[in-house]
Amino acid sequence: MQLVAHKNPDIVLLDLGLPDMDGLEVLTKLREWTQVPVIVLSARGQERDKVAALDGGADDYLTKPFSVGELMARVRVALRHTVKASEDEPFFESDGLQIDFASRTVTLNNDEVRLTQIEYKLLALLAHHSGKVVTQNQILREVWGAAYEDSSHTLRVHMGNLRQKLETGENPKRRIRTETGVGYRFI
């Protein structure tokens, strides 16, 4: 904690399974005074901890064991977001998929994709956090409202439909990744 205060790093990697202190507690304390990007590290099977950490302010997570390449990619995404967070992009583009937030239109390889209200909201939310994981609770809260936090069935149905519309063709590119037990990530 002191180290973070003194050195003022660009990013913090936090192991949730610290032997002497609860990782979540560290995160809560950090968030009291800094918005530095935090990536939590934990093992598979500790999905609840990950969700708690993400909901508690962490930016992303990595499951141990992970490769260096994976780690570097996550760090880059996290750093990019800190730069971009201030400016509100009116336009999003990723590998042939374009979203115009102003007119609320989505085109895929220049063909317009017809999305329902919910599907558009879902896609917009994930695109805003492109490369980062968005927890299931966060999605439910922001798309449906706080009262729907436990209707994961509905979420799965709509997500399935959205994917069908976006991931078309012979060998479709995966655009939305399911992080089992945690949430979704736009890649």
């Binding site: 999905e47 994961s152 990744r177 399911t178 089992t180 037990g181």
Partner: peptide, 25 residues
Amino acid sequence: LDMTRVQGAIQLDLDWQSLEDLVTN
């Protein structure tokens, strides 16, 4: 680790899941 988990009284974290998502992962 998984074995110790499933051997004791397993606490299942039940939630709706799409089979296709799980298989793809």
